[in-house]
């Protein structure tokens, strides 16, 4: 029973840390499937987290915070879109630029507005997301196996957690079952064909970039309004890059993304759990190895040793219409 309890706790924290990864990786899915590479997920998430923390602190409203997060994230996405779609600039360079601009400005603005060393003020009860407890969660906890799973694993998360998991089938439905999704995927594979069909490649890609902004906004809001109470500088701490790794690891498919994010989240949770505790059989595993594992796994996958990850064909290539 003790072992089972450990597993439940571990899985519960896995879910908690995977949520921003799922949002961000799905965000990346939309742009990359439309042929726009985006390594600015990190920056957008950070910008959104800051906007959410700052606005929620000022207005005392969690919804205003969420809205601000989404708007800022969309704005940053549009900068990326302008650079890489309209100006046909290098998409990677643009993503790097956004990461830097956000990393710097969140600290400078946060310090100027709140004077708490780059933090936003701690949020009270009303201005952050509360956990949702399912009905009867307390009374069924005693039931063996199913009880803890229901009341500890499924119940007791934030609204955004459930939204994140709901976004997985929704994204799948949008990408694979709607006209917009079909066109979006086509524009990432063969924009010329889409253009020939009389559909604007530019506008489609902009819409994909906006979708990415919305989802990154959720990811950022989750960090500063749910996971913690307020924004801390540099709080994304490379999650945007892990999400990117998860996106590739999942071979650009929605349900695989969820699994990849859960796997990487599990590694993260396990690393924290194992700090100082030796594993049976293997012995002491350095924490650093656990932390590096998502990246190592992604490199191995990319090298084609675990199946083949084939990116969208037109990814990273700006579309030039022949005249």
């Amino acid at each position: 029973m003790d072992f089972f309890h450990v597993i439940v706790v571990l899985l519960e924290s896995t879910i908690r840390v995977s949520v921003p990864l799922i949002f961000a990786a799905l965000a990346g899915l939309f742009t990359e499937r439309a042929g726009v590479f985006d390594i600015g997920l990190e920056g957008k998430m950070l910008g959104a987290a800051f906007a959410a923390g700052a606005v929620a602190a000022v207005t005392q409203s969690v919804w205003m915070g969420l809205l601000a997060a989404i708007l800022i994230s969309i704005a940053l996405s549009l900068v990326h879109g302008y650079a890489s779609i309209t100006q046909r600039g290098n998409q990677i360079v643009s993503g790097v630029a956004i990461n830097f601009i956000v990393a710097g400005s969140t600290v400078i603005l946060g310090e100027a507005w709140f004077r708490q060393g780059g933090r936003t003020p701690a949020l009270g009860e009303g201005s952050r997301f509360q956990t949702i407890t399912f009905p009867f969660a307390d009374s069924v906890r005693e039931i063996p196996i199913l009880g803890p799973i229901y009341s500890d694993l499924l119940s007791g998360h934030f609204l955004l957690t459930y939204v994140a998991f709901a976004m997985v089938p929704i994204s799948w439905w949008i990408l694979y079952r709607t006209r917009f999704g079909l066109r979006l995927r086509a524009v990432g594979e063969n924009p010329g064909a889409v253009d020939t069909a009389g559909i604007s490649v530019i506008w489609l890609r902009y819409r994909a970039v906006i979708c990415c902004g919305i989802l990154c906004g959720f990811a950022g809001a989750y960090l500063s309004l749910a996971m913690t109470a307020g924004f801390v500088k540099g709080m994304t701490a490379g999650k945007g890059y892990i999400a990117l790794a998860a996106l590739i690891f999942a071979k650009w498919r929605p349900f695989n993304i969820m699994l990849a994010c859960l796997l990487f989240g599990f590694l993260d949770a396990l690393a924290i759990r194992l700090q100082g505790n030796p594993l049976p059989l293997i012995g002491q595993v350095p924490v650093q190895l656990m932390q590096a594992l998502p990246y190592i796994l992604t490199v191995i996958l990319l090298a084609g040793f675990i199946g083949k990850a084939i990116p969208p064909k037109a990814g990273g290539v700006p579309y030039v219409k022949e005249r």
């Binding site: 100006q87 600039g89 290098n90 998409q91 790097v96 630029a97 956004i98 990461n99 710097g104």
Partner: peptide
């Protein structure tokens, strides 16, 4: 951190938006 912003802006304007 101001430097980080300037760095980002230089990358943006001299790199991604060089043709603007």
């Amino acid at each position: 951190d101001m430097i980080v912003i300037i760095q980002g802006l230089v990358i943006l304007f001299a790199g991604a938006l060089e043709n603007m």
